[in-house]
């Protein structure tokens, strides 16, 4: 079954590649447009991801497990959620950057609820993005979003974290 899944995935990727290259040669417009979207998004990601993963690597070797456990782990209390959200504020890029970082935090001993709060907060209150947003849509708009979503994010993360920890949930292993 797993084999089959892998095969069909590879098949789909090949199909996509063939479709784009054929489109480029016979000037099939939709295919060219899709190819252009792929390329522009690829460039955006490739500008960010090397730095993100280098920082994750440095984090892995330099930050002690006890430090994370103490501030973001089980003994840490409510303050740990505040740390998670502040850390999220400095994140750039979007969910696809926050997710690998969240995974690294988790494997270093951050508790699940804090990891969830970090992910959601990284989605909604990244500082550079918020400055940009408020500049265009106004501060009132951003303020409403912050004050309504952040409490909900914290409460839902605590509940979700406790629930999944009680069920013995483990995040997928990515290291080896």
């Amino acid at each position: 079954m797993k084999r089959f899944k892998q095969f069909s995935l590879i098949g789909m990727v090949l199909l996509y590649a063939v479709f784009i290259s054929v489109s480029l040669t016979v000037k099939f417009n939709p295919g060219i447009r899709i190819g252009q979207h792929f390329w522009s998004f690829f460039l955006q990601m490739i500008k960010l991801l090397p730095c993100v993963f280098i920082l994750i690597g440095l984090f892995e070797v330099w930050i002690k497990r006890e430090t994370i456990e103490k501030h973001l782990g089980h003994g840490a209390g409510f303050l740990s959620y505040i740390w998670g959200i502040l850390l999220a504020g400095t994140t750039i890029g979007g969910l696809y950057v926050a997710l690998p970082v969240a995974h690294a935090l988790y494997t270093k001993g951050a508790r699940l609820g804090v990891v969830f709060a970090y992910i959601s907060a990284a989605a909604i209150c990244r500082v550079p993005m918020t400055l940009f947003e408020a500049g265009i849509l106004g501060w009132k708009f951003s303020l409403i979003r912050f004050s309504v979503s952040l409490p909900l994010v914290v409460v839902s993360s605590i509940l979700l974290g406790n629930y999944f920890e009680k069920k013995g949930y483990r995040m997928p292993e990515n290291e080896r």
Binding site: L49, P50, F53, G57, L58, V61, W62, E175
Partner: peptide, 15 residues
Amino acid sequence: KTLKAFRISLKRFLK
């Protein structure tokens, strides 16, 4: 240690 960090970065990224 830094080289080790780079190895981890690369491994995670490839994965």
